[in-house]
Amino acid sequence: MKLFASILTASAITGSIWGLVLFQPAMAESAKQDELKPDVSIAQAHTQGEKKLPEIERQYLNGVTKNIALESMSALWGEFEGEWVKQNKLPEKLDRIVVLYQDLNSDFTQAKVTIGYIAPEYAPSKDFIVLPLMGKGNEDLLASRGQYSVSEFIDAWGRIDFKKSVDALVEVHYLSPQGQPESSQLSVYYK
């Protein structure tokens, strides 16, 4: 094969493999969707001898879910924007975007992350992710609702009580009526 044809072929191979690798997150995501455990919170309620909480008290998140390294968060935000914002899939009256971090590894570098909105209570789907139950006394507010710089918000992670086992972290980004980010809040949920 001549040099130019070889370079063209190599470019085509590179593009194809890159395309396949780009496509793989979707496969990973669909694999993860099947693993959803919507009854986790109920099981927890039973073990702690609490009264079973009514369905309405649970909140569900609808959006994109991935197992990722936390340094790749910007890519997930990009995906959320591409799949939900640009395609106008979000509800018209949206006042907050929620980011849920679950299954964090020991050095807090990777997690199952969901970026989405709180789904309507009346239509739970298997694609929805269950948000941790609030008011059980197992959560701590790491950053109360306010305006933070990126570094201040990252610093808030340092206030996690690492002696306890972390179940999840929830970031809430409140939006203005025009849909612009207004304030944020960060909470940790311990097991």
Binding site: T14, A28, K66
Partner: peptide
Amino acid sequence: LTQLPITGWSILGCLILADLAYYW
């Protein structure tokens, strides 16, 4: 252009492309 997640698929794809890059 993007930031790919660090998964087995990414590593496999990268290995094939690194091998092709090595050839050149």
